[in-house]
Nucleic acid binder design. Structure first.
Lengths: 247, 247
DNA sequence: CGTACAGTTGAAAAGCCTCAATCGGTGTGG
DNA sequence: CCACACCGATTGAGGCTTTTCAACTGTACG
């Protein structure tokens, strides 16, 4: 099932971006041999996180960015009064921890939704090397900018979409990212609960569940627990761009 | 009224961060004489934008970041179907345009809500110089990370707060940022319409208006058009951290 | 096999939105 | 200088979406 399952159980194995099959996702392209070698040195160690475990927590000192090798994470922020908000779901090849740079402390929690392994990239090493390798510098900037743009999209979703539109947009986004990683365009396994989906989408879990049921009734998707099969992708796309645009 | 109103009308005046009174807001601190000089060279020109004018638009090629010298901006994203979402309000000393880095095109509009002037900072120059001046490199990273963290906060607001909490959080945030720029802690002039506030907060303009009225009734603020005087800051803070936390 | 937890579904309530009318300031032209 | 128009803001009434509370079902795991 998992395309990227060729990792060793040994922590001590030589970690090398240069022959990592996820390189195209988290590293810059078009590097020469020598630059690749140097980038290998950035990734010092890998780290495993069990399902339910945290990669980092709000308030912890920030030292490294993490590239996800396998597994699935959520990041969430919380207020003092206990309310919390999922700010994103991250999968293989994505970079996590950018929030910690500004104050040298993490400002959210990163929780593994399934057993995961990440590449630890000490941020001072990244800064050091990106002073010398222009492509890496540019890449770091693009990754951060991409995260800003992604969050703009979430703000649009939270600020102006109704429940059906939110869930449709969510499913399309997930399946698109999974497809980019070699998975199906129409089938996916949700790694998160209805409550976590709801938190991300600004909805209560009951509303998420009801909206799923509605999609099923309308023949747009098939749902069996966390297994989702998208039957009518175009219908989902139409829902996202609806906005009762009969004007 | 405007603390930073000593700008010249001439475009050709020597632009220098080294003696800009906003330097502490947009540039790194602790630079030596020589580094300051070099940073002066990053800011090539200034640009004026009239009220209602755009600094950049969605789809336009990205080349520069902009540091706001005077004036007030909003940034907004839009869907094809015409719905749009204000993603932020920016004031003097803040950096705008980070969204453009990832695809070399801007992905949102930046609109001046009052006559404004910005420092144009070509991004390739920034990258070039930040390879040599570590403090600048670090600063750029922190600015981007700060934006990511800010957006996390907006997501929390949009995803889990009710109208009163959103408006209270909004007012507290605005007045805090204005205070950091030498303005009053309790009085402010809104540069945006109720509709723009609503768009940012995921509410309709009528709801914003009603919520203002409610705050007035409760003696928390005084409102005369866009002039707002915060009478009871603690009450606003209590509203933000409410979450019917009688648990 | 039973317990715990995730998910579903129903009914009622709350909150926000929509539509509509009105008010108030600002700016313009007669 | 006043009348009018325009735009932003306010307020009311009714409707719709989502939430809340509750009961119940299904699945996973010891």
């Amino acid at each position: 099932m998992n395309r990227v399952s060729t990792h060793s159980n040994l922590q001590s194995i030589k970690v090398a971006c240069s022959n990592c099959n996820l390189r195209e996702l988290c590293m810059p392209v078009g590097l020469d041999e020598q630059q690749l070698k140097r980038i290998d040195d950035v990734v010092a160690v890998r780290r495993k996180v069990k399902r339910g475990g945290t990669l980092f927590r709000n308030g912890e000192p920030f030292a490294s960015l993490f590239a996800i090798r396998t597994g699935f994470f959520k990041t969430c922020v919380a207020t003092e009064d206990g309310r919390d908000q999922v700010t994103g779901f991250q999968m293989a090849g994505e970079i996590i921890g950018l929030d910690g740079i500004v104050n040298d402390r993490h400002t959210c929690d990163a929780v593994a939704l399934e057993d995961a392994e990440v590449c630890v990239m000490p941020f001072d090493r990244i800064e050091e090397l990106s002073r010398e390798v222009t492509a890496l510098q540019n890449h770091v900037h693009k990754i951060m900018s991409r995260e800003i743009v992604r969050e703009h999209g979430v703000m649009l979703l939270l600020g102006s979409m109704r429940a059906e539109e939110r869930l449709a947009a969510f499913l399309l986004n997930l399946v698109q990212r999974l497809h980019a990683r070699g998975f199906s365009q129409s089938e996916l396994v949700l790694r998160m609960t209805r409550e976590e989906i709801g938190s991300y989408l600004g909805l209560k879990l009951e509303t998420v569940s009801r909206t799923f049921s509605k999609f099923v009734e309308e023949g747009i998707v098939e749902v069996r627990q966390r297994h989702v099969r998208i039957v009518d992708t175009d219908a989902l796309k139409r829902i996202v761009n609806s906005q009762q645009s009969c004007l």
